[in-house]
Simulated scan of single mutants.
Amino acid sequence: MDGRPANSDTGKSGVIVVVVGPSGAGKDTLMAEAARHFADRDDVVFARRTITRDPASGGEDHDGVSEDEFAALEKAGRFAVSWNAHGLSYGIPKDTLDAVEDGRLVIANGSRSALAHFHSAYPAMLVINVIASRDVLAARLEARGRECREDILRRLERGSLAVDGDYSVVTIDNSGSLSEAAQTLIDTLERRLFRRV
């Protein structure tokens, strides 16, 4: 690979790849594997989210801010996309818009509920929907120790793994081997770099 922007020879803008999926599906782990794979490429950018959560709480590497700080950043126009979910606020840096305009492939950890906002902000968007079987999701969530299995199963029964909306979507099942699911994500991103997906 030559490290050129994904669309440098066409003059077209790049694309935002929004990775979504339910809690326990393994989005963070798969994205971390993909980030390692593409670490030496300047045409692939992994967006760093701003979240109203302490970075020491675990999960993805992010910029943790207070609710007041988040509101100030939002008011100042520092986010390309922002949304609220599960009692937290999330923001995608505004500079990702420039990266897409420059022809880069930008990968962002998103939310199904925020896809309309992403679609409005970026000229081209691909959605990666990471899923897992309900048994696997329940086991992973139970291992976190935040809810009992019965509550988890009830919540999972009420939820859907589908993506609603007229978007280009690639679904990755992360119920089994992490290495296989990570390779599927990497292959999907590689194909998008060469405009084959």
Rank of each mutant, 00 (worst) to 15 (best):
residue 2 D to Q: 09
residue 5 P to W: 14
residue 6 A to M: 13
residue 7 N to G: 11
residue 8 S to H: 14
residue 9 D to M: 13
residue 9 D to P: 00
residue 12 K to G: 03
residue 12 K to F: 12
residue 13 S to L: 03
residue 13 S to H: 08
residue 16 I to N: 08
residue 19 V to Q: 07
residue 22 P to D: 12
residue 25 A to F: 09
residue 26 G to F: 07
residue 27 K to F: 05
residue 28 D to V: 11
residue 29 T to H: 06
residue 30 L to I: 05
residue 30 L to V: 07
residue 31 M to R: 07
residue 39 A to S: 15
residue 41 R to W: 12
residue 43 D to T: 06
residue 45 V to P: 10
residue 46 F to L: 11
residue 48 R to A: 08
residue 49 R to A: 03
residue 50 T to I: 13
residue 52 T to M: 03
residue 54 D to I: 01
residue 55 P to K: 02
residue 55 P to G: 03
residue 61 D to Q: 14
residue 62 H to T: 06
residue 66 S to I: 00
residue 67 E to N: 11
residue 68 D to A: 11
residue 72 A to Y: 00
residue 75 K to F: 01
residue 75 K to Q: 14
residue 75 K to M: 09
residue 76 A to D: 14
residue 79 F to E: 00
residue 79 F to R: 03
residue 80 A to T: 03
residue 81 V to T: 01
residue 83 W to F: 13
residue 83 W to M: 10
residue 84 N to H: 13
residue 85 A to M: 11
residue 88 L to R: 05
residue 90 Y to L: 04
residue 93 P to M: 09
residue 99 A to M: 12
residue 99 A to Q: 14
residue 101 E to Q: 12
residue 102 D to W: 06
residue 103 G to W: 10
residue 109 N to M: 07
residue 109 N to F: 10
residue 111 S to C: 05
residue 112 R to S: 10
residue 113 S to Y: 07
residue 113 S to K: 11
residue 113 S to I: 10
residue 113 S to C: 02
residue 117 H to E: 14
residue 119 H to M: 02
residue 121 A to T: 03
residue 122 Y to D: 04
residue 125 M to T: 08
residue 126 L to C: 08
residue 127 V to H: 00
residue 127 V to N: 01
residue 130 V to M: 05
residue 131 I to Y: 09
residue 134 R to D: 15
residue 137 L to C: 09
residue 137 L to K: 06
residue 139 A to D: 15
residue 140 R to S: 08
residue 141 L to S: 07
residue 144 R to E: 03
residue 148 C to I: 12
residue 148 C to S: 15
residue 149 R to F: 00
residue 150 E to Q: 13
residue 150 E to C: 04
residue 157 E to S: 13
residue 158 R to C: 03
residue 159 G to V: 02
residue 160 S to R: 15
residue 161 L to M: 15
residue 163 V to W: 07
residue 164 D to P: 03
residue 164 D to M: 07
residue 165 G to W: 01
residue 172 I to E: 05
residue 173 D to S: 07
residue 173 D to K: 12
residue 174 N to W: 04
residue 176 G to N: 12
residue 177 S to F: 02
residue 182 A to K: 01
residue 182 A to M: 01
residue 183 Q to K: 10
residue 185 L to D: 02
residue 186 I to P: 01
residue 186 I to E: 04
residue 189 L to A: 09
residue 189 L to D: 04
residue 190 E to V: 13
residue 192 R to T: 12
residue 195 R to T: 08
residue 197 V to H: 06
residue 197 V to T: 14
residue 197 V to F: 13
